[in-house]
Nucleic acid binder design. Structure first.
Lengths: 125, 125
DNA sequence: ACATCTGTTATAGCAATAATATAACAGTCG
DNA sequence: CGACTGTTATATTATTGCTATAACAGATGT
């Protein structure tokens, strides 16, 4: 998988990395059981520090996207906790939808946007 | 309007303030033309520094939610730039929906969530 | 056994950001 | 004139993000 890091972004490197990997799972570029590159490999590949990659992996572990095995490194392993996730999503959506509502974006336009994006995400299989 | 600030949150105070005000506009607690409290008043009310409030107002101005008048202070004034806003929303949704997709949350569940939240946002009037 | 890889932990330094504290300035209003 | 407005400047402190170097224990392949 190609990981794109924008060094001019104001978003933290470890968060960009986290997001890219979640995107990668959603778009089936990573599958349950796949190993991610080791922290040292990926760090060298991208050209950033080992600890920055390690922080991204730690967050992904914390959020239930990977499990870390001392032999295989970081392995994709989704911990499906729907209730918890729904609560997080709701909180994220609240501010975003407030913004869109203020800017006269209709509910229907949001629904269309959702469909467009979700089309790329096949779900787990 | 009641502004709730969580001093234990890891979210920056000025961002909490920004979000609360956007929420306030979406839920019609603030209307086009309303004045927000002055930076010094609101700072004292919440118990934070004047500059933190000023930063929140500056961001809101930058994002097209208020205009600052030297006489009336920060006045709610929505600059509707739909195309620009849609692009921002799309980018925000991309990561959130990737996350929900990984966690086996269906498109329909997201749609329901959208409807629930949007119900509280009457739109501008 | 040995070298090499893995994640993990510790410590340190540097830069940017968040928040605070004073202070001053110019425009507005009663 | 006095009291308010936003704005700007400067300084300090704490936190965060990122890097650098180093070491440790477990796993792997030769």
């Amino acid at each position: 998988m190609v990981i794109e890091i924008d060094f001019n972004s104001d978003e933290a490197l470890y968060l960009q990395l986290r997001n890219q990997i979640i995107l990668g799972i959603a778009t089936s570029q990573f599958h349950e059981g796949d190993s991610l590159p080791s922290v040292r490999q990926l760090a060298e590949l991208i050209g950033i520090n080992m600890h920055t990659v390690n922080k991204a992996y730690t967050v992904l572990k914390q959020e239930g996207f990977v499990k870390v095995d001392r032999r295989k490194g970081a392995v994709i392993a989704i911990d499906v906790d729907k209730l918890r996730t729904l609560e997080e999503i709701r909180k994220d959506l609240q501010v975003i939808l407030a913004k869109s509502s203020c800017k006269n974006i209709s509910k229907e336009e949001i629904h269309e946007l959702i469909d467009e994006i979700y089309e790329e995400y096949g779900g787990l299989e």
